[in-house]
Computed example of a mutant assay.
Amino acid sequence: MTDWLEIRRGDGPLIISLPHTGTDIPAEIEATLPSAWIARKDADWWVDRLYAFARDMGATTVRTRLSRTAIDVNRDPAGVSLYPGQTTTGLCPVETFDGEPLYGPGQAPDETEIARRRAAYFAPYHTALTAEIARLRAIHPAIVVYDAHSIRSHVPRLFDGELPQFNIGTYDGASCAPALTAAVEAACDASPFSRVTNGRFRGGWITRHYGAPANGIHAIQMELACRGYMDEPADPASPDNWPPPFDDARAAPLRAALERILSACIAFAKDPA
């Protein structure tokens, strides 16, 4: 294990992947970034804290403490766009979701630097995730890989209007069994929050790469709107207002819904027929 890779093992048939909650940036990379705040702006803020309860349910968690600015472990390592024709960010992003440049002139990573980061950071994360999938699949008839994310409710450059609270991604049904999708949808719909399936977010590289329903590995992505657990500012994000602190009281209803969602994942994995 490295100092940036956090693995907490459980014995249940559920793995929670946390690829974007990190904010650490290696010093040699941070030296090329004009703004420390911009470099960390698009983190999935507080999502690891939001899902901390899952360990008591027997879930395994795999998390990188590194910022997605250093390396995005939820992108195709070959650099292929996950959403052709739509605005997105890459394996080593060079701009934020809002289009702000992350690097100074001439400082963006070249192919050699991208390859170095891929070997140093991307590969170990996926080696760990692959090992946990194999460990749990060996003792369960099926497992669920749940890729946990969040994003600001309004990012006009990426999507129109306000994002639903729950955004389920199953790679248009290819990454998991229909029964799992239906169970997660039902848990979402029993809550007071809005939900969409395979809308703007259909699942990143982790969901698409690891989902193999025929082999008992069912992958699903959950992209949450941040307003469910923090007081999102009405004004555009700035160093003065972003990120807001985690709000336990505000998060309580969302966390209760997430507990039902993860319980549905576990129940499915125990009886996937």
Rank of each mutant, 00 (worst) to 15 (best):
Ala138Ile: 11
Ala131Arg: 12
Asp42Gln: 04
Thr130Lys: 04
Glu223Phe: 00
Trp205Thr: 01
Trp205Cys: 02
Phe246Gln: 07
Asp271Asn: 15
Glu132Gln: 11
Gly104Asp: 11
Ala264Glu: 09
Phe268Trp: 02
Gly161Glu: 00
Asp189Trp: 11
Ile220Glu: 01
Ile38Cys: 11
Arg202Lys: 15
Ala120His: 09
Asp271Thr: 14
Glu223Lys: 04
Arg137Tyr: 03
Pro124Glu: 10
Arg65Gln: 10
Glu132Asp: 10
Asp44Phe: 05
Tyr83Pro: 01
Ser67Tyr: 00
Ala179Trp: 05
Leu50Pro: 05
Asp189Met: 13
Gly10Cys: 13
Arg68Asp: 07
Leu66Val: 01
Gly173Gln: 12
Ala256Lys: 04
Ser263Ala: 15
Leu91Trp: 03
Gly228Glu: 05
Arg200Glu: 11
Gly228Gln: 06
Phe53Met: 08
Leu180Phe: 07
Leu136Thr: 01
Asp72Phe: 02
Ala120Pro: 00
His149Thr: 05
Val73Asp: 03
Arg227Asp: 12
Glu185Ser: 10
Arg195Thr: 12
Glu30Val: 02
Ala256Arg: 02
Val144Cys: 06
Pro239Ser: 14
Glu100Pro: 14
Glu28Arg: 11
Trp37Asp: 09
Thr127Met: 04
Ala52Trp: 10
Asp42Tyr: 02
Glu259Ile: 13
Ile206Gln: 04
Arg195Tyr: 03
Pro13Leu: 02
Arg116Gln: 13
Thr21Pro: 14
Pro19Arg: 05
Thr61Glu: 06
Asp172Gln: 12
Asp76Leu: 11
Val184Leu: 06
Ile217Phe: 01
Ser150Phe: 04
Asp48Ile: 07
His209Pro: 04
Val144Phe: 05
Thr96Trp: 14
Ala264His: 07
Arg208Cys: 02
Leu14Val: 00
Thr112Phe: 03
Leu163Pro: 01
Ala138Asn: 13
Ala59Gly: 11
Thr112Leu: 11
Cys226Leu: 14
Ile38Glu: 14
Arg250Ala: 10
Gly199Met: 03
Thr60Glu: 03
Arg116Lys: 12
Arg65Glu: 06
Asp247Ser: 15
Glu223Asp: 06
Arg200Asn: 10
Asp44Gln: 10
His140Ile: 08
Ala225Tyr: 02
Phe53Gln: 00
Leu180Cys: 00
Pro236Arg: 15
Trp205Lys: 00
